[in-house]
């Protein structure tokens, strides 16, 4: 299967995907366009978390916190000062990045599981803070209502179709940006740190700074996704930023293929679009999802479309044996 897919030149894939992206909304109805919109928002979140988990190898299970900071920045400033939504994109990115800088600094020396736990803690503290309505800013459990719509060259973006193009334009930008980042000096430094932080430090890479950078950039992109989510929904509440939201983002990255941009898109597709196709079983959806997470880790731990580097990384180093089931796929 893999062999036939590889025979198709990559450019053909891009052209086909691009065409599909443009034609898609005109072939379907508003409902399916909205499905694609949420697909896009979660793809952004997946891509942003991929920088932290995939490139730098830092287990972040509190990504919803950065998403929340971005969304609430937009919501609060838009509803109180009526600043246009799209102007707030850079600001949301900045506040999320600043927040990430503050919380990531003291915890960067933690590894693996410990980092995972601390990020869960931060994620929950952010959610609890939002519920507790500090200074009357966040509206408590009800959240912020009446967030404005973005407007571009006089066109107010309101319909799902308009949002579709806005969201996917952002997704495309982020894909191109992270692709460039991946191949840059910084991207290579991240890969190096993930494989062996000690060796990376010995080669002159400032490990702490690079890890911090991964957190800051990942958070900034999550902040952008938060901005768009807030304007798309017009209402946001702490319920949208729970631990399970972070788990979903983490799963997108791991199930799609850690460190691989096409993998993230496929992972998001698997998480959001496939369940829509099987709406009949919607109540058992999460049950199947949980079972799928376990099955994936046993039979295809490298994800659906893994990056070349992680394909090797998911093989156990200490024993030199492939992880369970890995040998069947090659």
């Amino acid at each position: 299967m893999d062999r036939y897919l590889k025979a198709i030149p990559p450019r053909a894939w891009y052209v086909a995907a691009g065409l599909l992206l443009v034609v898609y909304p005109f072939l379907t109805n508003d409902y399916w366009i909205d499905v694609a919109n949420f697909f896009g928002i979660y793809a952004m979140l997946g891509l942003s978390l991929n920088i932290i988990v995939g490139y730098a190898g830092l287990f972040n299970l509190g990504h919803a916190a950065f998403y929340a900071v971005g969304a609430y920045t937009t919501a609060i400033i838009n509803t109180t000062f009526h600043v246009p939504i799209l102007w707030l994109v850079p600001l949301s990115a900045l506040t999320a990045a600043g927040f990430a800088y503050l919380i990531a600094r003291p915890i960067l020396h933690l590894r693996g599981d410990y980092l995972c736990i601390v990020t869960i803690g931060f994620g929950e503290i952010v959610r609890i803070t939002l519920v507790n309505n500090p200074l009357g800013l966040t509206g408590g459990p009800n959240g912020v209502l009446g967030i404005g719509r973005p407007s571009l060259f006089g066109l107010i973006i309101k319909q799902p179709l308009h949002f579709y193009f806005l969201i996917w334009a952002f997704v495309l930008l982020i894909v191109l940006g992270t692709k460039r980042l991946e191949e840059s000096r910084i991207g290579r430094a991240w890969n190096y740190i993930r494989e062996d932080a000690l060796a990376a430090a010995a080669m002159g890479i400032d490990v702490a700074r690079m890890k911090l950078l991964a957190f800051v950039i990942g958070a900034a992109l999550a902040g952008v996704a938060g901005n768009i989510y807030a304007s798309k929904m017009a209402v946001i509440s702490p319920d949208s930023f729970t631990f399970w939201e972070s788990v979903v983002m983490f799963s997108i990255v791991v199930l799609g293929g850690v460190g691989s941009i096409p993998g993230i898109l496929v992972g998001t597709f698997g998480m959001f679009v496939l369940p829509e196709l099987f709406r009949g079983f919607s109540s058992a959806r999460m049950l199947v999802f949980g079972a799928a997470m376990i099955a994936m880790m046993i039979f295809r731990p490298q994800g659906l479309l893994p990056s070349q580097r992680w394909r090797r990384a998911m093989v156990d180093e200490t024993v030199g044996l492939p992880a369970a089931g890995l040998s069947k796929t090659s």
């Binding site: 287990f59 791991v254 199930l255 049950l287 949980g290 997470m293 093989v315 156990d316 992880a323 369970a324």
Partner: peptide
């Protein structure tokens, strides 16, 4: 014998299930 990432995801999956 898998990487450290795999059991975390598997455990979360079991929890969700």
């Amino acid at each position: 014998r898998a990487s450290r990432l795999a059991p975390i995801v598997s455990a979360l999956g079991a929890s969700i299930f």
